[in-house]
Amino acid sequence: MIDINDFKQSINDAYPPAGLPSRVQALWHDGAGDWKKAHDLIDQETDKSSAHIHAYLHRKEGDLWNADYWYKRAGRIRPQVSLAEEWNMLVQEYLQ
């Protein structure tokens, strides 16, 4: 698996690194500025990890009601950190 520094550097590439799970690919696309692609990758997933990332994406979109719904599905609460900090926390958690 790729480490967090290499993952962050790959954001400048045309495509995410090969072999990443869809939830990590979603974080990559969001980091690269493509919220829609990130959401499309995560939208149909049903596991708690994907729900966690889905929540973050709706928080970033500004749809806090929908974000809170997805945080609840993930068994989490909306964090009181910046979006950049949350993205970093998600990458660190799900890249492993």
Rank of each mutant, 00 (worst) to 15 (best):
E85S: 13
P16K: 08
D68Y: 07
R73T: 03
E93P: 03
A18I: 04
H29A: 09
Y56C: 02
S49L: 09
A84W: 03
E85R: 07
I42V: 10
Y94S: 01
L41D: 09
I2E: 07
K48W: 05
S10V: 00
L95A: 02
G75M: 15
G62R: 03
R23F: 10
P79W: 04
L83A: 10
I4E: 14
A55E: 01
I11T: 04
A74H: 07
S49E: 14
A67F: 02
K72I: 04
G33Q: 13
M1T: 00
M89I: 05
T46Q: 08
D68N: 13
Q92H: 13
L20W: 13
D34L: 10
S49T: 00
L27W: 12
E45M: 07
R76K: 15
N5W: 07
W65D: 05
L90H: 08
L20Y: 09
K48S: 12
G31W: 10
P21M: 10
G19H: 13
P21L: 11
W87F: 13
E61C: 01
D40N: 01
G33L: 14
I11F: 12
G75F: 09
G31D: 11
A51Y: 06
W65R: 07
Y15V: 08
D68H: 03
G19Q: 11
D47L: 05
M1V: 00
N88D: 15
N12T: 05
M1H: 11
I77S: 12
A14K: 15
L95D: 00
D47M: 06
Q92M: 12
R76D: 12
P16D: 07
K37P: 00
V91E: 11
K60W: 01
E93C: 05
A14W: 14
A18W: 14
D68G: 03
Y71Q: 04
S50F: 05
G19L: 12
L27G: 07
G31A: 14
Y15K: 15
N12I: 09
H54S: 10
K72Y: 03
Y69F: 08
L90E: 03
W70C: 08
A51C: 12
W70Y: 12
W87G: 04
E93K: 12
I42A: 08
S22V: 08
K48Y: 10
A67S: 14
K48H: 11
Q96T: 06
N12E: 15
G19K: 08
M89N: 14
S22H: 07
